[in-house]
Structures are given as C-alpha cells and as structure tokens.
C-alpha cells in the first residue's frame, strides 16, 4: 500500500466502515505491460467509491478483475467472506449474481428489446411468473426514470437512456455490489448530472456498495465517499476530501490537469479564459 503521511490518516477513516471488497497485493501483466503491481485497497460497505486514474491505467481492468472477468497473475480479492480469484467457471458464474455491472457502452443484447434485456436475469434466475416479472421490471424502470421504452431495441436509445437501461439491468437482481464502468462517458453535462443523481439515489435507496470508474472530476467530487487513485500499478485511497487536499504530487498533477484542484482554482480560471460553471463548485 503506497501511503503518504496523510495516507495513514485516510486509512483509519475508511476502516470506520467495514470493507466489502478487499484487494490484497494484486499483480497483473498484459505481455510486457504491467497493469497492477502489488495493488491493495479496500472498498467500504454501502459507500460510493470512485476509481480515478489515467486512461489505460487499469481502472476498467480493476472492475473486471473484481467481477472475475479477468484473472490476475497474483493476489487476492475478498468480497465479503469469499475469495474471488481462485473460483472456477461455475463458482464464478454463481458468485456474479451478487454483483451488478453497468458497462460503459451499456452492453445490452442488441437482438432483444429493452424490456427483454432487463427482464432476462429474472427469467434466468428466478421462478417469477410473467406478471411478477412485468411488475418488477416496470418498478425498476420507474426507479431509473425510463418510460415507454419497453419495445425499443437498444440501438434506438439515446446515450442517457442507454445508461439508465444498463443501470436497470444491473440492479434488477438487487445485487450487493454495483460496478459502474465509466457511467458518464459520451454524455452531455446535463445528462451527467441526471445519471449522477440516479446513482447516488440508487445507493441511498438500496444501500448497495458502488464502485465506479470515472475521469469526470466534477462528479467524482460531488458523489464519492471514497476515492481510489490508481497510479503506477498501485492504489492510493482515502475519503474524497482528503484526496482533494492531498499533497502527493501525482494526485496534485492529475487534479490540476482535470481542472478540479481547489488549491489552484484561481490559476485555472485565468488560464482557461472561460468562466467556470457554477455547478462545478457546488
């Protein structure tokens, strides 16, 4: 665990809430490229954790590894009292029922309608009747704010609706962990705010532990309870506030480049030449 002086204090803070996902000494190589080099971090139960880092820094790979879609070379991942990395095909399949995943592009099956997509897990894993399925799906659609999309194909949805449908499908089996891979990619600023609220609302309504990757700093600062910062194959984690004011140069430079560094707000404002949005400060 690479911790700065304030990192030690961060660690104490996250331990107030029991860890839901605990990653120990994760290592992964793709050919010559090292993705994780002894990465350790913990994701507190019922909280929203945002994973930040440069593109290609292994954010999505981390989510895929937790979801057992990617086998690491070394290391343990504990979800609750289960160790994930040593699972076999059938065990992994069983385990994934506890996890919902919202993919970057939605990953809805494009041969099925939105309704069929969202109801698919229910048909596969429950013995619900057609009426119960209809009711559950409609309830889920209301929760994510989707209307009149039942018979549309995924290709006919707008970006924002696609994300909502993906969220609805990820949440339909009421998972204990929700993984969101870049939930804001390809959305306009207004849609970002709406999806942001939706995710926070989902977290508060169901108490699901949320792990999301993003490089959208504004929304990260607004919604994250904890931030995991991937840098050089390792992780720096801590509550949002402390990451924001961290003096670690790697974090500083990332925050400065994203325009979300509170310490250099004035500079940035002058540099960019654009008046900053009010909402970015809130």
């Amino acid at each position: 665990m690479s911790m700065t002086e304030d990192g030690t204090s961060l660690r104490r803070n996250t331990e107030e809430v029991p860890a839901h996902v605990d990653i120990l000494n994760l290592r992964l190589h793709f050919g010559d490229r090292t993705v994780f080099d002894g990465l350790s971090c913990r994701f507190p139960q019922g909280k929203i954790t945002v994973i930040l880092g440069a593109s290609g820094g292994g954010k999505s790979t981390l989510l895929r590894t937790i979801a057992c879609l990617q086998q690491p070379d070394w290391g343990d991942i504990w979800v609750g009292d289960k160790e994930v990395t040593s699972m076999h095909r059938h065990q992994a399949q069983q385990f994934r029922r506890r996890i919902g995943m919202m993919f970057q592009g939605g990953a809805l099956l494009d041969s099925l309608t939105v309704y069929d997509n969202v109801s698919l897990p229910l048909r596969e894993h429950t013995k619900m009747t057609e009426d119960e399925i209809r009711e559950t799906v409609q309830h889920q659609f209301t929760a994510v704010g989707l209307k009149n999309v039942d018979q549309l194909l995924p290709g006919q949805l707008s970006g924002g609706m696609m994300k909502r449908a993906a969220l609805a499908r990820a949440m339909i089996l009421e998972p204990e962990i929700l993984l969101c891979d870049e939930p804001f990619s390809g959305l306009d600023p207004l849609a970002v705010r709406l999806i942001e609220n939706l995710i926070v609302e989902t977290n508060q309504r169901t108490g699901v532990t949320i792990l999301m990757t993003s490089h959208h700093m504004g929304s990260t600062m607004r919604m994250a309870d904890q931030v995991v910062f991937l840098v050089g194959g390792a992780a720096i984690c801590g509550p949002t506030k402390e990451i924001q004011t961290s003096v670690d140069p790697r974090i500083r430079s990332f925050l400065r480049a994203s325009g979300a560094d509170p310490l250099s707000e004035e500079e940035l404002y002058l540099d960019s030449g654009f008046p900053r949005h009010e909402e970015e400060h809130s």
Binding site: R64, M101, A107, H125
Partner: peptide
C-alpha cells in the same frame, strides 16, 4: 461484435454463460 461491445461480458455478469 458482441465481444467488441462487451455483450458477452454483460451476459457473464448476469450469471449467464
């Protein structure tokens, strides 16, 4: 195309082989 758009991973995440 389903591999490229993560649809197969989507199925895996729904515990569907």
């Amino acid at each position: 195309a389903m591999v490229a758009t993560e649809q197969l991973d989507g199925l895996r995440m729904m515990s569907i082989d």
